Lab assay of single mutants.
Amino acid sequence: TFYNFIMGFQNDNTPFGILAEHVSEDKAFPRLEERHQVIRAYVMSNYTDHQLIETTNRAISLYMANL
């Protein structure tokens, strides 16, 4: 899942690491979701930090390219 992918960046001092920290603390994050459209919609609806949203979009693109 995307959640498992992004958790691989925990403790990294990178934008993906920052995203992983936010996702791990977000109890409502769709952890079992595999459809990138649902993940993107969730982030757009629940996150207000523009940098975090952009990082999510980049992470989703990388995740999709590696499926």
Rank of each mutant, 00 (worst) to 15 (best):
H22M: 09
T1F: 06
M64R: 09
T55A: 11
N57Y: 12
N66R: 09
D12E: 12
H36Y: 13
E54V: 09
L62G: 03
T14W: 04
M7T: 05
L32V: 07
N46W: 06
H22N: 05
G17D: 02
H22D: 02
R58W: 10
N4A: 13
Q10V: 14
F2D: 01
P30Y: 10
F29L: 02
L32F: 13
N57E: 15
Y42K: 00
A41M: 11
M7K: 05
E25P: 02
P15A: 12
M44Q: 11
L32M: 13
L52H: 03
D49T: 06
R58S: 08
M44P: 00
M64W: 07
N4S: 13
L62A: 09
Q51V: 13
Y47N: 01
N46E: 06
A65V: 09
S24P: 04
P30W: 09
I39K: 01
I53P: 01
G17F: 04
T55Y: 11
L19N: 02
V23S: 01
A65P: 04
R58K: 12
V38Y: 10
L62K: 06
I18T: 10
I6H: 01
Y3V: 02
N66S: 15
I60A: 03
I60K: 00
Y47G: 02
D26Y: 06
R40G: 05
Q10A: 13
S61I: 14
R35D: 15
E33N: 04
I53K: 07
Y47A: 02
G17I: 05
F9H: 05
N57K: 11
F16V: 02
R31V: 07
I39T: 01
V43F: 07
M7W: 03
Q10N: 07
I6S: 01
D12I: 08
I53Y: 05
T55H: 04
S24R: 15
E21K: 15
A59W: 05
E54C: 08
H50R: 13
M44S: 08
F2P: 00
Y63K: 01
L62I: 10
M44I: 11
N57H: 12
E33F: 04
F5A: 00
F16M: 10
Y42F: 04
G8H: 11
L62S: 05
N13K: 12
A65R: 10
R35Y: 06
H50N: 12
K27R: 11
Y47L: 03
Y63N: 01
D49C: 07
V23C: 04
T56L: 14
A41Y: 09
S61L: 14
E54N: 07
F9R: 01
Y63T: 01
N46T: 12
Y3K: 00
Y47S: 02
H50K: 13
G17A: 10
F9K: 02
F5K: 00
A28L: 13
R40E: 08
G8V: 07
F9S: 01
E21Y: 13
V43H: 02
G8C: 11
S45F: 08
N11W: 09
H36G: 14
R40W: 15
L67V: 11
L67E: 09
R40S: 08
S45D: 13
N57D: 12
Q51C: 11
T56D: 01
D12S: 14
R35Q: 09
Y42Q: 00
M7V: 06
F2E: 00
F5C: 02
I6Y: 05
H22V: 14
Y63F: 12
H36Q: 08
F5G: 00
I6Q: 00
E54G: 05
T14A: 04
V23N: 02
F5E: 00
Q37T: 12
A59E: 03
R40P: 00
N13W: 06
L19Q: 02
Y47V: 04
V23A: 04
T48R: 10
A59M: 08
L62R: 06
S45T: 12
D12N: 10
L19P: 02
S61E: 15
Q51P: 05
R40Y: 12
D12F: 10
R35W: 05
N66Q: 15
M44G: 06
E21A: 15
N57S: 09
I60G: 00
K27L: 11
Y47K: 01
G17R: 07
Y42T: 02
Q51W: 14
R31L: 05
P30T: 03
R58L: 14
I6L: 14
I60Y: 05
T48E: 10
H50F: 12
Q37I: 08
P15S: 10
E25K: 15
H22E: 04
L62D: 05
H50V: 13
T56K: 02
R40D: 02
R31C: 06
N46A: 09
T56Q: 02
A20T: 03
A59T: 03
T1G: 10
G17V: 04
A59H: 11
R31K: 09
M64H: 11
Y63C: 04
P15V: 11
S45R: 10
